[in-house]
């Protein structure tokens, strides 16, 4: 009989299955490679810490997105408040997720992330969740806003992008 995987193994399996979220969120919120690695590390640590209380009521990806976005937004604010790139406190950079090698045609992807980075924190989270194919209900669950609000904001973002003013300012304005 196969033994049940321990908590750490289970965690690793789930992270493996959803590792793309780590890459996407860190790339959407950090421009620099080193900062991205730091952010991924912070997200993984927070995921592991919260994993004990994960009861499976929400989908793992929804839960992971919530934590990743919360850590990323806080990380970005901290960097902004410091007015400089974050120093590596322990002098060690842990590369949990090896960044993919650039491939031909990746300019379009770079441009896509540049566009995403022009949006403010919460709009950026919204567009990231939308592009990742999450239904409105899942977006509402991750962000903690109503379905109507999600729909309104997405249509407003579409409009802004169509007018070519995407990114500058928030979808509020």
């Amino acid at each position: 009989m196969k033994a049940a995987p321990d908590r750490a193994e289970l965690f690793l399996e789930e992270i493996e299955a959803h590792k793309q979220i780590l890459h996407k969120v860190s790339r959407a919120y950090c421009a620099g490679r080193e900062d991205r690695a730091d952010l991924v590390q912070e997200i993984v640590v927070q995921l592991w810490r919260s994993f004990a209380s994960f009861e499976g009521r929400a989908k793992f990806s929804t839960w992971m997105y919530r934590i990743a976005l919360n850590v990323a937004i806080s990380f970005q604010r901290r960097n902004r408040a410091n007015g400089r790139d974050r120093a590596h406190a322990d002098g060690e950079l842990l590369q949990y997720v090896a960044a993919p090698e650039p491939e031909p045609g990746s300019e379009a992807i770079d441009e896509l992330y540049r566009r995403i980075a022009r949006f403010e924190d919460f709009d950026r989270a919204l567009i990231l969740l939308y592009l990742d194919g999450n239904p409105h209900a899942a977006i509402a669950e991750v962000l903690g806003i109503s379905l109507t609000n999600v729909a309104t904001r997405i249509s407003r973002l579409k409009e802004r992008l169509r007018q070519g003013s995407g990114g500058e300012g928030s979808a509020n304005s």
Partner: peptide, 30 residues
């Protein structure tokens, strides 16, 4: 780039990530 175009690029990105992203299990365990 409008939202529909962004979605197309995102889909390409998604496929590439699936192939190239590696998680350092050993480091995570240690």
């Amino acid at each position: 780039m409008n939202l529909e175009e962004m979605q197309e690029v995102w889909a390409v990105h998604e496929r590439r990530l699936e192939r190239s992203l590696r998680l350092n299990h050993q480091l995570l365990r240690e």
